[in-house]
Amino acid sequence: MPTVQPIITTPNLDRQRAFYERLLGAVQTSRFPADGPIFFVGLRLGDSELGLVNETEVDLSAPPRILLSVEVDDVNALLEQVEAAGGRVLGPPAHMPWGQRVAHIHDPDGNMVNLTQALPQ
Rank of each mutant, 00 (worst) to 15 (best):
M1Q: 11
P6H: 15
P6M: 10
P6D: 11
P6Y: 15
I8V: 11
T10D: 06
N12I: 15
L13D: 04
L13A: 06
D14T: 11
D14E: 15
R22Y: 06
L24S: 01
A26P: 02
Q28Y: 00
T29L: 01
T29P: 00
T29A: 01
T29F: 01
S30A: 10
S30T: 05
R31L: 10
P33F: 06
A34G: 11
G36W: 01
V41L: 06
V41T: 10
V41S: 06
L43D: 00
R44G: 06
D47I: 07
D47F: 06
S48K: 11
L50Y: 00
G51W: 08
G51S: 08
V53R: 14
N54G: 07
E55W: 14
T56V: 12
T56L: 12
E57I: 02
V58T: 09
S61D: 13
S61N: 12
P63Q: 10
L67M: 09
L68Y: 02
S69A: 03
E71Y: 13
V72R: 00
D74E: 09
D74A: 05
N76E: 14
A77D: 07
E80V: 06
E80F: 01
Q81C: 06
Q81R: 14
Q81H: 09
V82R: 00
V82S: 01
V82F: 00
A84R: 07
A84G: 10
A85L: 04
G86L: 04
G87N: 03
L90S: 08
G91P: 01
P92F: 10
P93S: 13
A94Y: 08
H95L: 13
G99Q: 07
G99E: 09
Q100S: 12
H104Q: 13
I105C: 02
I105G: 04
I105Y: 07
H106N: 14
M112F: 14
L115H: 05
T116S: 02
Q121S: 14
